[in-house]
Design a protein around this nucleic acid. Structure first.
Lengths: 242, 242
DNA sequence: CGGACTGTTGATTCGAATCAAAACCGGTGG
DNA sequence: CCACCGGTTTTGATTCGAATCAACAGTCCG
């Protein structure tokens, strides 16, 4: 069957949560308004007051803040099945922006509909709360990444994280994964300049850790990359029962 | 009346949430086991599986991760009334540690008790969810802080944030606030070396922005400090209705 | 074919880390 | 009461990682 919007959400939620059939029915029952967006489209603006959440069904998106001096910092990267602005359910004014990294298919779900479903299905509410907490755990790891790791370790960590998250929803081929991001955008994720991102990637390639061609990253030495990154997957909380 | 453990939680929740009298009764009904802790006491270890949440009633605490190379990064600072490990309600294994920054009075509340209260009082559950989302919003701002701001701006931002959060629960005197933290710990918050923290603080003092004596910080030029920090208080979500 | 974006390279600067040592401070015990 | 001690703050000298500046090459696309 063709994967509709709700199915991508269910796939993603099931990675980290135990949903029962009634929960899944409730998700299928959610009214979702589909939309297609081009790369770099602004999905939700900083300062906005949303009445909907945005379910990312295809493509990549990111959340970002821009400093007073005009420097952009990417806060998180989002993959299909995620609801990057789920926090807007309880935080009514956006403190950052949500942007399409690549062309995307998204679905907007009214807060009211999610609130109703949460009331009917407390287990679904718990799963969504848990998703926002995993979001939070990833933010924490990113603080460590930009605060304490070298450029090479930062890059390695980001790549390993993306590989693991994409693998969990079946969006990898072996050690390769499609990830269409520019070096400037990588710099905004890692708190590095574009030039330094370029040199860091070259160094990872030279050391035989990764290969990059076009929008396709490939991890050639997973052990080596994880060691360089100091990667510990605990923070991704991918196992529903722990 | 003497402020017991539950009251500090109510004070803090009321800053950002609308609680009704039944919610407040439910909080007062929570069984809380009080404990006193010395400075640098480990409250919850990385990797632990908690059965309780820790309510911080007096003193300061922080959450932190330690990299493979032994570098510590502080992820968040916590003030009285907060539950720094509220996420453990849904994330059963700790991906970081919780530590007492100063001598603390804390209260442990069983997950079961909180779950029961949440079931009885959906409005309380929403408030706690919102608290974890505000936590998340602060993490986002910290990513920007360590990723994109200069040392002086980072320090300024941290001090303005702490002042605003402490003011919201009545723990400031005018522009001064008690904040017993060493320069090494500030470095761990900001991703800076101790030596550079020292020089950064000197520069803020020289510019007449702050004064520090003992554990007492004083903001001498709020406008100037906020401008240097590029501070926008939106992310603190201190207004319950937005 | 031209133009805009993206990636690459080299030269240089700069902010912050590191290394090393001294000064300061509060507590403790002789 | 004072000497001592560990932790903290301060200072100076030096190194180093990453930013910046400036070009140029590659690629995609209208």
């Amino acid at each position: 069957m063709t994967s509709n919007l709700a199915s991508t959400l269910i796939t993603k939620l099931t990675v980290s949560n135990n949903l029962d059939s009634a929960d899944i029915r409730a998700i299928h029952g959610l009214p979702i308004r589909e939309r297609k967006l081009g790369a770099s489209a602004l999905i939700v603006a900083d300062g906005a007051r949303s009445t909907d959440c945005c379910l990312l069904a295809e493509g990549f998106a990111f959340r970002a803040k821009t400093t007073f001096e005009g420097q952009r910092q990417v806060l998180s990267l989002h993959i299909p099945g995620e609801i990057p602005d789920l926090q807007s359910l309880h935080l009514h004014v956006m403190d950052h922006e949500l942007v399409a990294l690549t062309p995307c298919k998204v679905g907007f779900i009214a807060h009211e509909a999610i609130r109703d479903a949460n009331q009917q299905r407390p287990n679904l509410a718990a799963a969504l709360w848990r998703e926002t907490l995993i979001d939070s755990a990833i933010f924490r790891e990113w603080i460590v990444n930009v605060g304490r790791r070298s450029a090479a370790a930062r890059m390695a960590h980001l790549l390993v994280e993306m590989h693991q998250r994409l693998k969990a929803v079946g969006l990898t081929q072996d050690d390769g994964f499609a990830f269409p991001i520019t070096q400037a955008e990588l710099g905004d994720c890692l708190g590095l300049s574009t030039v330094h991102v370029n040199r860091t990637l070259q160094s990872l390639r030279k050391d035989g850790l990764i290969s990059v061609e076009r929008a396709e990253f490939r991890i050639l030495d997973m052990q080596g990359l994880e060691f360089l990154a100091g990667f510990d997957p605990t923070y991704l909380h991918l196992n529903p029962s722990i």
